[in-house]
Amino acid sequence: MFNQLFGNIWLVTLASGAVIMGFLTVNALFLVWLERKLSARFQRRLGPTEVGFAGTLQTLADAVKLLGKQLITPRNADKPLYHLAPVIVFMPVVVGVSLFPIDRQLMFVDLNVGLVLVFAFAGIGFIGIFMAGWGSNNKYALLGAMRAVAQNIAYEIPLILSALSVTLLARSMKLSAIVEAQSTLPYLLFQPLGAAIYLIGAVAETNRAPFDIPEAESELVAGFHSEYSGMRFAVFFLAEYSNMAIVSMVATTLFLGGYHGPWLPGYVWFFIKVYGLISLMMWFRWTFPRLRFDQLMSFAWTVLVPLSLANLMGTAVVLKVFRR
């Protein structure tokens, strides 16, 4: 689509980048507002009401406030790592978003290894988190970073295994092909276990409650980003909410049939599904207490990994037997 419009690959890249950055910013602003509003309603509060209609501009005001805040660098911080970390955390997100088919003809890049690329870039973010934790020269931050890395490794396996079952069904790793394969029925119906494992893994991947142990406020103050202030902190925040959008987009693409849906246009369906999933994750967060670190790990390694392996094997066997 953009190719026809511009024809120039650099222009296309620049334009896509601008669109994606714009989308990520608006998305984060909206999600923070949604989270505050939803959490407030779950807790019988009102949430933001003052700035803009129903407080919609509150997060924008907060972002402006964060822009004006002093950037503090701890005295004994490992400065290159400390300064680079927010960038490393945020950049993979930009690539991740560009890979999803938002509508039949609307996607930035359509690669035949799209799914692999999504997970590959999702993994990079954790290097940034570890850099942040290590570079801050703060024990709480380091503890949070160590937790984050261990958790990421543990939960990426069931996440990818459950995604693999879907690729077996679709016979492709091309995201647009996976979505097209679900034109009649979403894979949720064929892969309920895989979808459930994916959802749990996704919540853990985004460090959200009840798996928010890397930044567990009551234990580690703010975890890996304890020492970050101002816009650097805002970038971590932006990355967190963008990651939520990405894992929900993956889930939408893999299990919910992407842009397929009756009556409404494809992109509307896509975003309904994405934000529905995000709301579900918020609902989790504002209901459950937090797991302990060892419980989280043993849950991943003794429950989710075997289950997802069994799911993958089962899918393969069933496909081998019943598909011509």
Binding site: R41, R45, W283, T287
Partner: peptide, 21 residues
């Protein structure tokens, strides 16, 4: 038990907020 908890928060989602402005 997790679903029961989520039901409680869902029920409260539709109750009137108690905030005093």
């Amino acid at each position: 038990s997790l679903l029961a908890g989520m039901l409680i928060t869902l029920r409260n989602l539709f109750r009137r907020p108690v905030t005093e402005q």
